[in-house]
């Protein structure tokens, strides 16, 4: 019976149905399953399958985003309980993500965020038009291992450099791996401004983040 609930939960994440996932998470708790087990064998396993289906080319971006939302809906119920038990779910690390100051392009960043979530990272999305100082403060207080900066405009790419410089000035550069992305960004730019990684699309962003995670 409890096995079935977890299988159903995985299937609901795979189907991308947030409301259902939430209900099932509650049912699983009511059935006496441990929160950590529900997260890991239900939600995380489900979202990993979503990621795999996407890599296989069977799933498309909307499936991915709905999968990520479903997982979040489940976590809303379960995470407070984990914290209460002094537990944490297994995670590859936390990524602070945002589009740099002066830039309102959000779509690419959102996709990168969704795929990172679906691949086992935690993502804290600061939105668009994020001032340099806000990135720096977030790095300072959160202890996140990764910072992802999106920039789509020739006129805003230098803000990525500004954030890296500000991190250096604040003595925080060693704390995070900085990833850069956005249409006008290339490897040469990322190297020049001293980023740790660059990716031209979301799937590669995950690959780079994973490589950096395992290297550290």
């Amino acid at each position: 019976m409890s096995i079935d609930i977890l299988a159903d939960l995985r299937a609901a994440v795979l189907d991308g149905e947030p409301a259902e996932v939430k209900q099932m998470a509650q049912r699983a708790l009511a059935a006496g399953l441990a929160p950590l087990a529900i997260v890991q064998e239900g939600l995380t396993a489900g979202i990993r399958e979503v990621g795999e289906e996407f890599q296989k080319g069977k799933y498309f971006l909307p499936d991915l985003v709905r999968g990520a939302h479903s997982m979040e809906a489940g976590l809303e119920v379960l995470e407070p309980l984990l914290a209460g038990n002094g537990e944490a779910r297994a995670s590859l690390g936390t990524v602070i993500l945002g589009t740099v100051h002066g830039d309102l392009h959000s779509i690419g960043k959102n996709i990168v965020g969704a795929l990172l979530r679906a691949s086992g990272f935690e993502v804290e999305d600061l939105g668009v038009n994020v001032p340099t100082q806000v990135f720096v403060e977030k790095v300072r207080e959160s202890g996140a291992g990764f910072l992802g900066l999106s920039a789509l405009l020739t006129t805003t790419v230098h803000q990525q450099e500004a954030v890296i410089t500000a991190l250096e000035d604040g003595g925080l550069r060693d704390r995070v791996r900085v990833l850069l992305g956005g249409a006008p960004i290339d490897k040469a730019w990322a190297d020049r401004v001293g980023a740790d990684g660059y990716a031209p699309d979301a799937a590669r962003a995950v690959r780079v983040a994973k490589e950096l995670a395992s290297a550290s």
């Binding site: 080319g57 498309f60 971006l61 779509i107 699309d201």
Partner: peptide, 9 residues
Amino acid sequence: IMDMRSGQS
């Protein structure tokens, strides 16, 4: 149109 695999516009 967004290409639903790569996200490209």
